[in-house]
């Protein structure tokens, strides 16, 4: 296998309702290390299902998935492996409302053996990257939707994962905020070298990505 490949899938399928609903049908593709990659397609095409499978949150009905050449599910079962290798950004952010901005970003680091000072420093650096260092003590409820998404991005990056998966990160944002977020992802991809995979149904955003695939009814329509 090519050493430059981070994620590879072979004939990946996912069925629901005893096979009556086909979410993904024999999807094979690969993502290179450091790529800014998009999974596109209309609603119900299987984009989020594919993202969840790549992130190890769901199991395929059939097919194979590899992370740096290793079987993905076995690899993610190793203690701390998910945290150190995969960061998630969800469409509806899923921030803890009772924790402030800095604490939300620190959440994944609870698992890592680092000094409290080093953890805080890293979280503050990321908040600075996403332009929220001045709001680190703010309550989540006081933030705008765009700001909340930035906190979620900082949280996904704080453990310095090799792969960041973002499920329609601009879906809840207006066009200006959506563009800002995509520019931010691009900047992070360029500066940190992390591979970023974004699920989107917006066609107009093509120019941002190194490469993309388009799904339709669970199959790759174009790549």
């Amino acid at each position: 296998m090519d050493n430059n490949i981070l994620i590879q899938t072979r004939e990946l399928s996912k069925y629901y309702a005893d096979g009556k609903v086909v979410a993904l049908d024999k999807v094979s593709f690969s993502i290179k290390k450091g790529e800014f990659f998009a999974i596109k397609g209309p609603s119900g095409s299987g984009k989020s299902t594919l993202l969840h499978l790549i992130g190890g949150l769901d199991q395929p009905t059939s097919g194979e998935m590899y992370f740096e050449g290793k079987d993905l599910n076995s690899f993610l079962k190793q203690s701390g492996s998910r945290l150190k290798n995969i960061g998630f950004v969800f469409q509806v952010f899923y921030l803890w409302p009772t924790l402030n901005v800095l604490q939300n970003v620190l959440l994944p680091l609870v698992e890592l053996r680092m000094s409290a000072k080093a953890k805080t420093q890293r979280a503050q650096e990321l908040l600075s990257t996403v332009g929220l260092s001045h709001k680190r003590q703010s309550a989540i409820s006081k933030l705008s939707v765009g700001e909340r998404q930035r906190v979620a991005i900082a949280r996904a990056l704080v453990a310095q994962p090799k792969l960041v998966l973002a499920d329609e990160p601009t879906g809840s944002l207006d066009s200006k905020n959506a563009e800002n977020i995509l520019q931010l992802f691009k900047k992070i991809n360029r500066e940190s070298g992390a591979t970023i995979v974004i699920v989107t149904h917006e066609r107009m955003l093509d120019s941002y990505f190194d490469r993309s695939i388009t799904l339709f009814d669970g199959k790759i329509k174009s790549s």
Partner: peptide
């Protein structure tokens, strides 16, 4: 449930 589910999703053991 949601908060714990997210902790598991972001890699908490």
């Amino acid at each position: 449930t949601q908060e714990i589910g997210i902790l598991l999703a972001i890699g908490w053991r």
